[in-house]
Amino acid sequence: MTEPIVKFQDVHKSFGDTQVLKGINLDINSAEKVAVIGPSGSGKTTIIRMLMTLEEPTSGDIIVGGTNLWKMEKKGQMVRANEKHLREIRGDIGMVFQHFNLFPHMTILENCMTAPIHVKKEAKEEVRDRSIQMLDRVGLGDKLNNYPSQLSGGQKQRVAMARALVMRPKIMLFDEVTSALDPELVGEVLEVIRDIAKNDDMAMVLVTHEMDFALDIADKVLFLDEGVIAEQGTASQVIEHSTNERLQEFLHRFRK
């Protein structure tokens, strides 16, 4: 058994007086596909936002590839991580957002090319080829020079995925990526995620409301409720055979 690529150790998070996460312990292995489900406000999104360094945990440790993400050693003591430390680890993580967050002043090709060129200092020609390839893969090879405002929601979200993938992350985070889409556009986005899950060997964490989809692609499903992981296991264990009442209730509401 190899060391998990991500470890959460007793992670707490509060916003002001509101405790959102109350002790999260979680291992994610490399190449593992994890789905996080649960009622809204249960802290699902906060978990992956902390991993993406967009929120700092109130207490606890998040270990990524053996290194503590939010703490670093300084003169023999563990202190709060600085931007440089975060940047060293963050490079292995990519994220797709609920509201796409494409850069509106760039074409979709530029959206994909900017970070590899400026952040990873890769050669422009190589990045261009890879970006075109990736946009082709998500079905947008014919829109390279379009601006995000000219695309549908589903297309925007597929660009956002290509943009994250050209950075070649080891861990991909998906934050309710279909919630902002019109129902008829959900399918095309899920198809891309399914394709990534099948063919790429990165770890994936999906915060999602698409229960059937989660069941289909996830190796592990977490049910988050009131700030703790109330249930975890394989998809069929959690979704089909769990005895947790809150989970039953939650699933029941969903299936109606």
């Binding site: 993406m52 967009l54 940047r87 994220m95 957002f97 509201h99 967050n101 952040v119 956002a160 950075m167």
Partner: peptide, 11 residues
């Protein structure tokens, strides 16, 4: 969200 997306791309 723009800052967050840029952060996620490790800028």
């Amino acid at each position: 969200g723009q800052t967050e997306a840029a952060t996620a791309l490790n800028m």
